[in-house]
Design a protein around this nucleic acid. Sequence first.
DNA 1: CTGAAATACGTTAGTACTTACGTATTTTCT
DNA 2: AGAAAATACGTAAGTACTAACGTATTTCAG
Lengths: 317, 317
Amino acid sequence: MYLASLGKLALGSRLKALSDHFYGAADEVYRALGAPIESRWLPVLRYLWDAGPSTVTDVAMAIGQTHSAVSQLTDKLVRAGMVRRRRDPADGRRTVLTLTAGAQDALAGLGPTWCAVRRGVNVSLEEHATHLLDAIAACERALKERPVAEAILAEHAAIKAAPLEIVPYAPALREHFYRLNAQWLERHFRIEDIDRAVLGEPERYILQPGGAIFFARLGEDVIGTCALLQESPGVFELTKMGVDETFRGLGAGKRLLEACIAEFRRRNGRTLFLESNSRLQTAVRMYEKAGFVMQPSVRAGSHYERADVYMIYRPGA
Amino acid sequence: MYLASLGKLALGSRLKALSDHFYGAADEVYRALGAPIESRWLPVLRYLWDAGPSTVTDVAMAIGQTHSAVSQLTDKLVRAGMVRRRRDPADGRRTVLTLTAGAQDALAGLGPTWCAVRRGVNVSLEEHATHLLDAIAACERALKERPVAEAILAEHAAIKAAPLEIVPYAPALREHFYRLNAQWLERHFRIEDIDRAVLGEPERYILQPGGAIFFARLGEDVIGTCALLQESPGVFELTKMGVDETFRGLGAGKRLLEACIAEFRRRNGRTLFLESNSRLQTAVRMYEKAGFVMQPSVRAGSHYERADVYMIYRPGA
DNA sequence: CTGAAATACGTTAGTACTTACGTATTTTCT
DNA sequence: AGAAAATACGTAAGTACTAACGTATTTCAG
């Protein structure tokens, strides 16, 4: 599913899709069992059932919708003979909604249906249903305390204010080299033995053979890395490019790539190549823009199982 | 929040509310930062950005919407100058959607904004955002495998077929006595010392002093329990009524109550009382229907902190 | 090669909301 | 008590979809 790859950017869309799915399933069940209600009615009807006669605003507050939504839904419920509208004698502004006797009977008869819904959801979703409910509840609470729009704007200001810097390897950054590469490896492939070795001891496998490692920092955060590995005299491999998923889109990848190419030139390298995977389209496009050219076949003697893309640096070609 | 109390019955409504919240927050951010897009456009625009020119159906499949939704959204995007519609020269039925140069620039400039969105969501929701995403993904997968409507209908048939029986205490049922009561105690209050003792050793605390315990079974499942405790000769307390949340609405509570009252009569009891809490409205209403009458004040010398309701059985009163 | 089936996609009508607004009624302020 | 503010709620208009339909175009079957 493409939306899943957008992660937190498409939360709204995915929640909507799930929501529609559940509404649809509920309506299918009600129709199949001949129940005289619709899924959208449930919050109002159940609230009147649990709390007794209530005003439009009471119901709206309880079920988290606007008063006009409740008012319009009431029109339908009145037409369906489920609810009666009455003026509150004590306060002429208020409309009191009451379940009709027919609705009371209908709801009482729905006990087994609701029980089946709870059981069916458990069967279908297993423990995920509970996780989903817990996550929803936790998010509802968190959003009430810290509105997300505010937090985003604050983060935006912080990102805009922080300088994006490229810095060379330093021992204190070693763990970041592992972290930043493990992230995309785990997401798209799996960590091969050669990865574990190189990521764990970058000094030995990259710097000592005459390579270089760069990091991208945004203020205090280390958000990306890229390495230049000397394969044989004058022949370099661009490898271990990784940008923290949260910080994609800031241009860190491009800056790291430029830093590696500059280092390659500084060392008078002859050949610069890289291996990648066609699934990492964004990365491959970035390499192309930077001057790498796609080769017709994979590199002979590649170290990586996942490599199905082989590119060579040919500036201006 | 009332909807939370409906649990799995109102999944659709709660997901919709959360979804709207995220859409609203995103639009607020885009507006505040002067970004020329709307939250609903994102899936289409990002897909065209990631995948390149695509047909209407391609986009619709990728983002999980109908082709007409994409078609209508395209109208808007064309009007906004973000997308171009072209006929596919190779297949005259197809419409290929392409991002305009202006849209490419706009999206490229949104990198920091999207980064801020991811960061802001993390700040606002902390680890709950990840839990929510994981739960959504798990549910999406599960729903594809086992459609929930089918599962519900199967459960409904099973529930209707299984007989609801009331059975007396048996040692093999002891753990159910604990489980069924712990469920509502933990949800609404907390387990007091006296609960732990009585629930752990019902023989000693309830049966031995001359009481009785009943269980409700639905087929193989033990779904509810209720106890009659002899407080002093001829004076009984109705207590430890608990019905599994999943199985509410089948009438098990009523049946258990009737069984206890019958037992009280069989023993020629003089007084039958109960203590409860006003938050448990459904239960209190059930007690009233069965013949219990609300007393003006709590019982003197109650064992329970949570008791704020005191009722005495007065049939026909 | 031709007619039937499949597909691609736009259009229309309908649903479930929201926002904005208008009109009663009640509460508050002085 | 009387005016201003707050409230309760219905209505109108708009949005973001879906389902159903109609019309091209392509594919397939014989």
